[in-house]
């Protein structure tokens, strides 16, 4: 080949439909959210209250069936504020959090709302690990994790 030929690039795309069962446990959790209740499962052996609820405890390898209601307030364990736009992900800026609800032994991943995020300096002064947060419910709840609109600082 004496001459450099243009390399041809072939476009590709996956658009594959799936259906995922939420199963018995997450379904009950989601129905609870619809009624503004946050439910978790306690392990009969290690006594940990697991959030989000799951069908078995991996440490004790026991099935879980002991439902307990946990608080709608909790403590901020960790956070990040995402400023980059990624297709299919929330519009930036958004604040991803881990919040440990009162009465639970593990943290729930969710979003933080009602804090201005545009200026990182002021946002990171306002958002502090250990701060108290509370759930804000959506008016229209459909039985899913988004029934909690976000968590916000306790006034």
């Amino acid at each position: 080949m004496t001459q450099e030929e243009e390399i041809i690039v072939i476009p590709g795309r996956w658009d594959l439909p799936f259906r995922h069962t939420a199963g018995r446990v997450a379904s009950r959790f989601f129905h609870g959210l619809k009624a503004k209740r946050i439910l978790a499962l306690r392990c009969p052996r290690c006594q940990r209250v697991l959030m989000p609820p799951r069908p078995f405890c991996e440490r004790c390898f026991q099935p879980l069936d002991d439902w307990v209601e946990v608080g709608q307030q909790g403590t901020l364990e960790a956070f990040t504020i995402c400023y980059a736009r990624f297709t299919g992900l929330p519009d930036p800026p958004y604040c991803l959090i881990l919040v440990k609800l009162d009465g639970a032994d593990s943290a729930l991943q969710h979003l933080l709302g009602e804090v201005a995020l545009e200026d990182v300096q002021s946002a990171t002064q306002r958002i502090q690990i250990g701060m108290r947060l509370e759930a804000l419910w959506r008016e229209e709840r459909e039985g899913g994790i988004k029934d909690i609109k976000y968590f916000r600082p306790v006034a």
Binding site: A22, C82, F86, L96, Q109
Partner: peptide, 12 residues
């Protein structure tokens, strides 16, 4: 079920 919608990923 619980976590995909949040926009979690390697960076976050």
């Amino acid at each position: 079920i619980y976590e995909r919608w949040l926009g979690g990923g390697a960076i976050t």
